[in-house]
């Protein structure tokens, strides 16, 4: 009776009614404790990222040289300490959540969207379509991700948008390959043939019959890629091709702190922890979501 909710009808008799799909997914999701913790943490990070602009002033607290003492270790006034320019690390970590989350989700959005589409087309149609798509994708796979990103940013200019595009497009090949292989295993199933026999169009077959069944490996890959996107963004910021300097992106903070990390480890500990916690939370939510979306796992 777990999937049913009690409802009393007009004649006073109670009966069990099925919940809507969204309620069902939520019901499944709730059962996974880790996923719920992850979701709470993620919501908290979002709230803090939004609240940061009310607590701190972007110009004075985040960007400019500050009157605070430089390189203070954590104390009451500056719980996370201050950096080499006297700015509060707490303020920058909170503000940085905006950039890191934005980069993480947009990059994965681009690469999952484009990659899954290409992979699904290749896996479903096979033959010439597959050859053209997959060989092109493999050519891009030969070039190291970072190099590809650098070329993209170098050609189109340094900005947050270009950084996200560069990171997103450079990981498309991985998603395309993953999507293709899972689509290929689903394509051979009899229910796909049955859908064809009913006259369902190719587009609908891909969207309704194949992708939902091929989703779990794609979803798992997407959640882990959020983490690597945040870290790649840090690499780019370090090379001076990513988020421009005063902006407190977490990766950029790490690279800014590099010369001081031997004597003032708090400069890398807090942004590092922030990355770790965010990534962990996203992974937990991703796992929970995958299980909740799969009706076969219902117990």
């Amino acid at each position: 009776m777990k999937f049913l909710k009690k409802e009393t009808s007009s004649d006073g008799r109670s009966r069990y009614v099925k919940k809507s799909k969204l309620q069902e997914v939520w019901h499944q999701f709730k059962k996974n404790k880790g996923a719920v913790v992850g979701l709470i943490v993620l919501i908290l990070i979002f709230v803090l990222a939004v609240a940061a602009s009310f607590i701190y002033d972007f110009k004075t607290d985040i960007c400019m040289l500050s009157r605070n003492g430089r390189l203070l270790t954590p104390c009451l006034e500056h719980p996370f300490g201050t950096d080499h320019m006297g700015r509060s690390v707490l303020a920058r970590v909170l503000y940085g959540a905006r950039y890191s989350l934005l980069i993480g989700f947009v990059v994965v959005g681009i690469s999952t969207g484009v990659g899954t589409l290409l992979g699904a087309l290749a896996g479903y149609y096979g033959g010439k379509v597959e050859t053209i798509i997959m060989r092109t994708v493999e050519i891009f796979l030969m070039i190291p991700n970072t190099l590809l990103g650098i070329v993209f940013v170098a050609v189109f200019g340094i900005s947050l948008t270009n950084l996200m595009l560069a990171l997103g497009l450079s990981t498309v090949p991985h998603f395309a390959r993953n999507a293709r292989s899972s689509v290929m295993t689903v394509r051979g199933n009899e229910y796909v043939e049955a859908a064809k026999a009913l006259g369902v169009s190719d587009f609908k077959i891909i969207m309704k019959h194949i992708l939902p069944n091929a989703l779990s490996p794609i979803l798992v890959q997407a959640t882990t890629r959020v983490a690597s996107a945040i870290i790649s963004a840090a690499t780019f910021s370090f090379l001076g091709l990513g988020v421009p300097s005063p902006l407190p992106e977490w990766g950029a903070m790490l690279s800014d702190a590099r010369p001081y990390m031997r004597d003032y480890p708090h400069l890398i500990v807090f942004p590092g922890l922030a990355i770790m916690i965010t990534v962990l939370a996203i992974n937990l939510v991703g796992d929970g979501l995958r299980d909740a979306l799969d009706p076969k796992l219902k117990r």
């Binding site: 229910y191 064809k196 069944n213 076969k296």
Partner: peptide, 20 residues
Amino acid sequence: RGKEVAMIFQDPMTSLNPVM
């Protein structure tokens, strides 16, 4: 397909989409 000619497949275990 489906309107004039419809088909019942051999194995009901595999001819239904598990996520619909």
